[in-house]
């Protein structure tokens, strides 16, 4: 065997890229304080492949045992991919619940949700509102029944704390240094790992230049 004969998957194919991207979306979503754009395309393609794989698994199982090792490998991978889709979607639902009113009242944020997430949010808000009204709001003086007023400097509408501290990994060098405090700047060099406030690097996360880790 010579070295050249090593069979290497040098160039990741589209499917591999999609899966890696899905994992990145999950971790970014998990770590970012704000809700990120729904990964419509990647999720759509991965779901399509899950469906196709389930179908071919059924075919395989007609002739083979469920514990046959090739079908076990296929089932194992299916569970892995399903897991990532599941935790990605659930992580978003947790944020949607937490920031429901904020998202609802900011069209540009609402637009980051998938259509089923939007539907979920709006219907949930109705249920929540009804709950508060029936629990105690209807017994309060009418002027106190709003769910979006501000007490002192604290609003009832919970917004994401975009200044929260996050760990990030720089995927590709950013030429200009980034402002992290009044007069403090940092360089984002490829491979560096930093602990800083999310708002300083938020645009780079969406461009894939920086990953949350």
């Amino acid at each position: 065997m010579d070295e050249d004969a090593i069979f290497n998957l040098e160039e990741p194919d589209e499917n591999e890229k999609d899966y890696d991207e899905l994992c990145r979306c999950w971790i970014n979503e998990k770590m970012a304080p704000e809700i990120l754009p729904f990964a419509t395309d990647v999720v759509g393609r991965v779901m399509e492949r899950i469906r196709a794989q389930l179908e071919s698994l059924e075919e395989i199982l007609e002739t083979e045992n469920t514990t046959d090792y090739r079908s076990v490998l296929i089932q194992n991978e299916l569970e892995r991919v399903k897991f990532v889709v599941r935790v990605y979607l659930r992580c978003r639902i947790a944020k949607i619940d937490k920031f429901a009113q904020y998202i609802q009242s900011h069209p540009h944020v609402l637009a980051l949700l998938s259509s089923s997430e939007r539907q979920y949010l709006l219907r949930h808000q109705q249920i929540v509102h009804r709950f508060y009204v029936n629990s105690f709001l209807r017994d309060l003086p009418p002027k106190m029944t709003k769910l979006d007023d501000t007490v002192g400097n604290i609003s009832m509408v919970v917004e994401p704390d975009v200044d929260r501290t996050v760990f990030c990994l720089v995927n590709s060098t950013v030429e200009e240094s980034v402002r992290v405090a009044e007069d403090e700047y940092v360089n984002l060099d490829k491979g560096s790992i930093l602990l800083l406030r999310y708002s300083a690097i938020a645009p780079f996360v969406q461009q894939g230049i920086v990953s949350l880790i």
Partner: peptide
């Protein structure tokens, strides 16, 4: 909400799959 996602079972485990 779960309906369209039956293939991934949204209320399934949130612990990474290990032994199938």
């Amino acid at each position: 909400y779960k309906g369209p996602w039956t293939d991934v079972d949204l209320t399934g485990s949130t612990v990474p799959p290990k032994d199938l």
